[in-house]
């Protein structure tokens, strides 16, 4: 198990390095806007280079590029509950989404303090270790299961509401884990987890 995990980590570092290198290479000679130019247009809602200053639009800097592309495709195909992203995602091709994914993956995530309930956060930390850490590694730091640590709390709430209301497709194993956390902590499970992630600043 340990070996597998460290292998995975190395693999990911290499890939992120590659991603970062690709993002800084000049765009190939082609028609159409650059990945950087497309990514710059997101900043009015997601902050400069994807570090949202909140209070509810999610940070996307440092995001795993595959998670980014998958999320955008889901919005584009109306497979993910959206208020606005579905309308915007429809403008981009697969290739353009990949370029934007590379751009955001190579940006440093800047986190900003937000108010949270320390008691709930402590409870959430325990729930996280028990039910979430396996996929959302290092307390939910940016990775191939998205960015939870330091993410804006209203956004995390909306996401969990959508999962629980059947408006967003559960990733593999997640429903079972969330159900177990709710069985343990009842109504406080989701607020506790959200406060825990929000507390990581």
């Amino acid at each position: 198990m340990e070996n597998m995990k460290s292998h995975k980590t190395i693999h990911r570092s290499l890939r992120n390095l590659l991603v970062a290198m690709l993002a800084v290479l000049p765009a190939a000679v082609s028609a159409g806007p650059s990945g950087q130019a497309m990514s710059f247009t997101c900043a009015g809602c997601h902050g400069t280079d994807g570090s949202s200053v909140g209070p509810s639009m999610p940070a996307i800097a440092g995001m795993d590029p595959e998670v980014f592309v998958d999320a955008m495709k889901a919005y584009r195909e109306d497979e993910r509950n959206a208020s606005i992203m579905n309308r915007i995602a429809k403008a981009y091709s697969d290739e353009q989404l990949k370029e934007m994914g590379w751009f955001f993956a190579s940006q440093r995530l800047r986190l900003f303090p937000q108010p949270y309930d320390p008691v709930l956060a402590e409870q959430g930390a325990r729930l996280h270790d028990e039910y979430c850490e396996k996929c959302h590694e290092k307390g939910g730091r940016p990775g191939d299961a998205g960015t939870l640590a330091g993410q804006w709390m209203p956004y995390l709430h909306y996401s969990m509401e959508d999962f629980l209301d059947g408006k967003r497709k559960w990733p593999r194993k997640m429903k079972r884990k969330v159900d177990a956390a709710i069985e343990e902590a009842g109504d406080k499970a989701i607020p506790a987890l959200v406060n825990y992630y929000g507390s990581q600043q």
């Binding site: 900043a43 009015g44 809602c45 400069t48 200053v53 909140g54 209070p55 509810s56 208020s83 909306y158």
Partner: peptide, 17 residues
Amino acid sequence: KREVSYAHSWFKNVIND
């Protein structure tokens, strides 16, 4: 309701950018 919250986020992020 979410769009109200996003409206305030949009304001802050435009100023930020």
